[in-house]
Amino acid sequence: MDTDNEQQIHYGDDYHYIPATSVASGKGVELQADVYAFTTQIVNLVAIGLPGKDSFVLVDAGMPNSADEILAMTRDRFGPHSRPKAIILTHAHFDHVGGLVDLIREWQVPVYAHTEELPYLTGEKSYPKPDPTVEGGMLAKLSFAFPHEPLKLGSWVHSLPDDGSVPGLPDFRWMHTPGHTPGHVSLFREKDRMLIAGDAFITVRQDQLYSVLTQKMEISGPPRYFTPDWDAAHESVKKLEALRPAFAVTGHGSPVSGEQLMDGLHMLAQRFGELAVPDYGKYARHKH
């Protein structure tokens, strides 16, 4: 990468290491031969491609300061000289783009996100601040310290194709699943009903510190402290439930499959106001 272009990309001004972890940190799970979910501290990313084939696609980019760990994982799985065809973002919250600038500098590959997510990746717009007043546990109370300012990726970031295709992943389609963020997307592969859901729904109560530390399984709505539009979030969950996925990797919590996934996602879609929407908080809506 030339020096001028490298100087144009950087993290948000409030980016910093977050001292939070879980029992899953540094571990990976192979859901299919070509789908590998890996956890950095308290968030998941996904590497899609066959092991040892040098080329793959990375979905999301971990916590702040996680680039070295991500690079080590990809070199171990795909080969010492491996590099992705592209990096796809479900959204641009700090815990999904935490290693992104360093990964671009190392790999020099394009990044793709929904058009409505681009302002948070080009320095134009900050996310709404996290809401530490929201109903929830200790992690929600600590969310005031979470970064929310935009990255500046310059010419490295692009809009996902309008036709629903995913660069580098011909078998996957992307779908717009807003609510947690305006441009949140999820990825789905019809042939094995594999879903990469980002934070449209998750499999742990992300606002509760004990659940995060232990990774206690619970199909839940998006993180309460960072979700401003609960009506859109509910519609997104219903859209994903209608796919009847067989496997799901979410942004937080363990991968889930089979009846546990379908039953849990159905219950969440049917009882979203009760199970997901907080009773109080800056972005909470009246609950019926």
Rank of each mutant, 00 (worst) to 15 (best):
M262N: 15
K287T: 10
F226M: 12
H286R: 10
I219G: 00
P228K: 07
H252R: 08
R271N: 15
G221L: 08
L275N: 06
A269H: 07
S257T: 05
S254D: 06
A233H: 07
I219L: 14
D263F: 11
L261C: 07
V249L: 00
T250H: 00
S220Q: 13
S211N: 15
E235P: 00
P223A: 12
G264L: 08
Q260H: 12
G281W: 04
T214I: 07
P278Q: 01
L243P: 10
H252C: 06
Y210A: 05
L275Q: 10
A242P: 13
A284I: 04
Y210D: 06
V212Q: 06
L240S: 09
D231P: 04
A246V: 05
R244Q: 14
R285T: 06
S220A: 13
S220N: 14
I219H: 01
Y280N: 01
A276P: 10
Q208C: 08
S236L: 11
T227R: 07
F247M: 01
L268C: 07
A284V: 01
P255M: 01
Y280G: 00
S211K: 13
E274T: 13
K238L: 15
S220Y: 11
L213C: 00
R244A: 14
V237C: 09
R224E: 12
L240Q: 10
T203C: 05
H286N: 05
A248M: 02
G281P: 04
R244M: 09
F272K: 04
T250D: 00
V237R: 06
A284L: 04
A248G: 04
L243A: 09
L268D: 08
G221W: 09
R244G: 08
V256I: 13
H286T: 11
G251N: 05
A246M: 07
A276N: 08
P278R: 02
M267G: 05
K282V: 05
L240V: 08
P255H: 02
D279V: 05
G253H: 04
L213T: 01
E259R: 12
E259L: 12
A248V: 02
R205G: 00
P223K: 07
P223T: 12
E241F: 05
K238Y: 08
D229N: 15
A248W: 02
V277C: 03
T250L: 00
M267C: 10
A269G: 14
W230M: 01
P278K: 03
P255L: 02
A269C: 11
L209G: 02
L243K: 06
E259D: 15
R205S: 04
L243D: 09
V237I: 13
V212Y: 10
